[in-house]
Simulated assay, not measured.
Amino acid sequence: MSKFPADVALVVIDLQPDFMPGGALPCVDGDGIVPGIAALLSQRQYRTVVATQDWHPADHASYASQQPGQLPFETILLHAQPQTLWPDHCVQDTPGAVLHPAVDWTPADLILRKGTRREVDSYSAFRENHGPDGNRPPTGLAGWLHERGIREVHVCGLARDYCVLWSAQDAVKSGFRVKFLWDLTRPVTEANDGMVREALAKAKIAIV
């Protein structure tokens, strides 16, 4: 039986091997959250579960390898917006891009692949990063959740300081109450934790 009301959904962000130790873009202790998230799903604590999956083409513009003379973690302007350049990661149809095999994903009602367009990065589950027209295109997730009667979203996964944070912020902007499951997230850089807490407080997002 679900622990949470029917109008609460769990959104698991990018729980993929490339974001874990030994992967192409490891988060600090990224694999440490796998057992907890696996338990949430196996116990059917949420009636609605969404999993996102970073799913990039091999020549994605966010890869440092695609920007001559640039190195991973440097910043460039992409579509007039700051873009962190990343090591090649979560390339479509590679082992590092799969949803983590230690989790039974059967309870997931929707698996949302993001970052599929070469020229546009996509941190958030709700909106891609800025595109060539200067806008952030919606992924359609907000509408899907609203039509299912969802009013509150709980977010977890990887990475705390990028994709999970952006997803939480965009969920608020999309009209949802949001809770941030801090212990079930991990950062790319622990030094960013203070920034993340400040951003969540500013957006009135509860940390649980």
Rank of each mutant, 00 (worst) to 15 (best):
R160N: 13
P17V: 06
V178C: 13
S62A: 15
A191T: 14
Q92F: 10
T84G: 09
L158Q: 11
V11C: 10
T189Y: 15
S2N: 10
M195F: 15
A64P: 01
F126H: 04
V28L: 05
R186M: 12
H56I: 06
A142C: 04
W86S: 08
H89Q: 05
D54R: 01
A24Y: 15
T52C: 09
C90E: 05
L77A: 14
P82C: 08
T116L: 03
V98S: 00
I33C: 04
V103I: 15
W144S: 04
G149P: 09
P35H: 10
A64W: 02
P35V: 14
V34P: 14
V178R: 05
P68D: 02
M1I: 11
T84I: 14
R160H: 11
V120N: 06
Y162R: 00
C156E: 00
D7C: 13
G175W: 12
T116S: 03
D29R: 05
S122V: 01
P35Y: 14
Q83I: 02
E198Y: 12
D161K: 09
P82I: 09
V103F: 14
L184V: 06
T75L: 10
V196D: 10
L141F: 07
S122M: 05
P95A: 01
V12T: 11
E152W: 01
D170S: 09
W86C: 07
E74N: 07
S2V: 12
C90T: 04
L10E: 00
Y123Q: 01
R127E: 02
L158G: 05
R47H: 08
G96A: 03
G157T: 04
G149Q: 02
A191Y: 08
Q16A: 02
L15M: 15
F180G: 07
A39M: 10
G140P: 12
W55N: 01
P35F: 15
M1N: 11
M195P: 03
L25N: 02
F126C: 04
P57D: 01
